[in-house]
């Protein structure tokens, strides 16, 4: 009986740690809300939500990545690059963030080149 109660207490403790470690529900709600807004092309709202999410969890690579995407969409290139870099620093192995940053660099560098240079390469 004593063994059973110890196991139960231990299990409940473990579960409570797991639940609290699973990022706050509030922060996750903000993330999801931001994604839904972005999908509806409401980028200002999305930026607001992701910034709020960062305020409650500044180490969220996802929130920084999403902000990078939003700034890119708004043409705020310097801000976008800053956010992508923070996201990569926080989660260097994340293939989605890597992909976003690679595409970001390629696109904006290419956009600066003239079509003349492109034609010469052909």
């Amino acid at each position: 009986m004593n063994k059973l109660s110890t196991f139960t207490v231990f299990s409940f403790l473990l579960l409570s740690v797991l639940f609290s470690g699973c990022a706050s529900q509030l922060q996750q709600n903000q993330m999801q809300f931001g994604i839904k807004s972005a999908q509806k092309d409401l980028w200002n709202e999305a930026i607001f939500r992701w910034k709020k999410s960062i305020r409650s969890a500044s180490d969220s690579a996802a929130a920084h990545n999403n902000l990078g995407v939003a700034y890119e969409k708004k043409g705020m290139i310097e801000e976008a690059e800053k956010e992508y870099k923070i996201a990569l620093k926080l989660d260097p192995d994340n293939e989605h963030i890597q992909s976003n940053y690679t595409k970001f660099k390629k696109y904006w560098k290419e956009s600066e080149k003239t079509e003349e240079e492109k034609d010469e390469k052909k």
Binding site: A23, Q28, M31, Q32, I35, A38, A61, A62, N65, N66, V69, E72, N94, H96, I97, S99, N100, K103, F104, Y107, T114, E115
Partner: peptide
């Protein structure tokens, strides 16, 4: 020519992450 002079838009794909 018009893209160079007048600007415009291009479609790009990115990832949004929830966690």
């Amino acid at each position: 020519l018009f893209r160079q002079v007048l600007g415009g838009e291009r479609i790009q794909q990115r990832y949004l992450i929830s966690k």
